[in-house]
Amino acid sequence: MRAFLQVIKGPGLGRKITLREGQLMYVGRTTADINFPENPEMSSVHFSIQWLGNECQFKDLNSANGSFRNGERVTDSLVYNGDEIRAGQAIFRVVMGEEGELSNPAMPEYAKPAVQPTWSTTKHEAPPPSGGTSGRIPAQQPPQQNTPQSTFQPSSPPPAQTPPPAPAPHAHAHPSAPIAVNAGMPSAEGSVGLLIATATDVVQIAPVDDDTKKLAKPDWNTPQFVESLAGQEKFLDAIRVLAFAMGKLTVIEWAHRCVNIGCGEGLSKIDANALDLVQRWLGDRSEGLRREIYAASQAADHGTAASWVAMAAFWSEGSMGPPPPAPPLAPGPTQCAHAATGAILLAAVAKQPEKAPDKYREFLRVGLEMVKG
């Protein structure tokens, strides 16, 4: 038996999302596991869906425009074969049974083979070999290596500008205060350095296309692969590979540094505040400070590189739902890396986009120094 969602109307018509039993899948516009950037009315992470045999558990994730099951607005609902879900401008149909029930052989398959999520990764949890169960496979995006553009575009000009605070080197290395996260939720504790050491392993989870995956040699480590991609000017994929190989705290710090390098004195007061909060949180990961970071990202309307650094921190641990007494909602294991990648790519084109290739090279140099040192 198989289950999938297929877009039957609106942006992304024909796209199909394969579900695997027990797997929690996040769907949204820009930073989910499956992304629909062509659907402007979807939220960045709009809903989650989990196949549970004869039914699927559907949850709207506080989206701006809501989700609708068979025309009725829902926040948390079971959905069944044939149900239709509207998110933004698109309508998805739930199909359970034989794939041929609503499958067109000419339509591309967007979901990749899935593996079980790993909610907390540390230095001591070595990733399994290729084909193992190191994390859920995120959706693939079309390659854009030869253009200084990012899929993460600011929605409005930044407000009045002020210089950013200088980042502290490796601020996450020695937390100085107790860590408060919701019980049972993922933690970023110990998630530092290079966690996925080999090229063939990291391409199993990094959102790169099949042509890039084929370039990964079995005897290459991740830094070698990143350097090879950069040498071929496949900068976007090089950044994605390195980001998804890093521990959560390291990728957040890398994104923080890149935004300071790329935006510099062009940061607004709102963005500078977001980066300052992230820098403080890297050294003192309290739950209260993490919630302040989320508020700072909202203040920037999730439209700037700094706001995506903040979202990377917020999604690195704890619940992505409202504070208690609301029930906890765990972020997906790749959401932190997705947000950090978005911040880095946006930082390269925020100012003087014609110089993006040079910025990509500098960002990669900084990132590689962090994991090699």
Rank of each mutant, 00 (worst) to 15 (best):
E21Y: 03
P129C: 12
N54D: 13
I8P: 00
Q6E: 11
V95I: 15
T250H: 05
T334V: 11
Q89Y: 10
H338I: 03
Q352P: 02
D83Y: 04
P327Y: 08
A173E: 09
E233W: 02
L229T: 00
P353K: 01
Q6F: 02
P327A: 13
L215N: 01
A340N: 04
S44A: 13
N62V: 09
E21H: 10
S130T: 14
Q145T: 12
A3T: 05
S268G: 04
R29T: 07
W308L: 12
R15N: 09
C336Q: 10
G318K: 02
L52N: 14
V181N: 10
E189K: 11
P333L: 11
S103T: 12
T334G: 11
W254S: 03
V203T: 04
P353V: 00
H174S: 13
Q116E: 15
V192S: 11
E41H: 10
A238M: 08
K359T: 11
I252E: 02
S103I: 09
G193P: 00
P167C: 12
F244Y: 15
E72V: 15
V259E: 02
P322V: 07
W119E: 13
P163C: 01
A90Y: 00
W315V: 03
L5Q: 00
N65Q: 11
A230Y: 00
T198K: 12
L102T: 01
S187C: 02
N260W: 06
I34L: 13
F225K: 03
I270A: 10
P327T: 05
I270R: 05
N182H: 13
M320N: 08
A126C: 09
G14N: 13
A299I: 11
A243T: 14
D284C: 09
L194A: 07
P163R: 05
G321L: 03
N260T: 10
A238I: 02
V27W: 00
S228Y: 15
F225E: 00
N81A: 13
E227N: 12
Q161Y: 08
Q224V: 08
P164H: 00
E109S: 13
R285Y: 01
A295D: 15
V7N: 00
A32W: 01
I85H: 01
